[in-house]
């Protein structure tokens, strides 16, 4: 059973960092209209670590992409840090992303022709700052994720775990408000996945970032402060989920 307009709003005193109101996403596929996200309401406070789970096609990546500003809603409002990003033009949205969002991908998505250092530096080139400041920020980010000794390595010369660390450094280097991760441990072995999740939690706590990840992995989701489940574009009540998970008890005659 799913709920419409489920209230996942927090009770914190200040306004939440992310406010989704009747957030809807539809797109055309041939003659059919697909609705991966349907009138979703959600509040995410600053400093939250939210894990989005659900089966394939449930809309969790769509929600993540909308929050990251790389996709645009078809209906409803998405207010982040007081800005309704659903009303921003394409170029304004790109500028907004460069300031407010760091994205960590499942397959790292590093630029293969740039070194680890240059990959981390890439988002900073969108900001006005001196080369010295830029260098310091890149150094700090790379030290935070533990790859300061891999400056001149190209992605092909790094392990999967190291590549993901570079990707995380790239995501945090601009000091964004929100860090989003789409299956950030999906391509890693268990040990590396655990290390990456430890790192992300630590960064989230130390730097006060709001972290939202999409995952299929319950172990990764267990790191989150909150886990939200989606199904057919809607959030599922925790109680409903618990009922589904409860073992069936045979009734006595």
């Amino acid at each position: 059973m799913t709920t419409n307009h489920t209230n996942h709003r927090t009770n914190s005193s200040g306004p939440p960092l992310i406010q989704c109101r009747r957030l809807t996403k539809t797109y055309k596929k041939g003659d059919n209209t697909i609705t991966p996200l349907q009138e979703l309401d959600l509040d995410v406070p600053t400093g939250d670590f939210l894990a989005l789970m659900g089966p394939s096609g449930s809309g969790k990546t769509t929600l993540l992409n909308l929050i990251a500003g790389i996709d645009r809603p078809s209906g409803g409002n998405l207010i982040i840090g007081g800005t309704d990003i659903s009303t921003l033009s394409r170029s304004k949205l790109a500028d907004w992303r460069s300031v407010n969002v760091g994205y960590v991908f499942q397959l790292y998505n590093l630029v293969p022709v740039l070194t680890a250092y240059e990959n981390v530096e890439l988002p900073l080139l969108l900001h006005s700052m001196s080369a010295k400041d830029r260098h310091e920020k890149v150094q700090t980010a790379m030290q935070l994720v533990g790859i300061a000794d891999r400056h001149d390595h190209y992605p092909r010369q790094l392990s999967g775990g190291q590549e993901q660390r570079v990707a995380i450094a790239r995501a945090i280097v601009t000091d964004p408000t929100i860090i989003v991760g789409d299956e950030p441990t999906g391509d890693l072995d268990q040990e590396s996945a655990q290390a990456i999740m430890d790192l992300m939690v630590q960064l989230c706590e130390d730097l006060g970032k709001t972290l939202i990840i999409v995952t299929h992995d319950a172990k990764s989701a267990a790191y989150a402060k909150r886990t939200l489940h989606l199904e057919k574009g809607r959030l599922i009540e925790a109680a409903v989920l618990a009922a589904r998970r409860a073992p069936l008890v045979p009734q006595e005659a």
């Binding site: 990251a68 790389i70 394409r90 170029s91 790109a94 500028d95 992303r97 460069s98 300031v99 994205y103 991908f105 397959l107 998505n109 630029v111 293969p112 890439l122 988002p123 969108l126 790239r170």
Partner: peptide, 14 residues
């Protein structure tokens, strides 16, 4: 194309 998408997600304009 994926790399081009990544660059856009970072904030680079088309």
């Amino acid at each position: 194309i994926r790399e081009l998408g990544t660059l856009q997600s970072i904030g680079y304009r088309r």
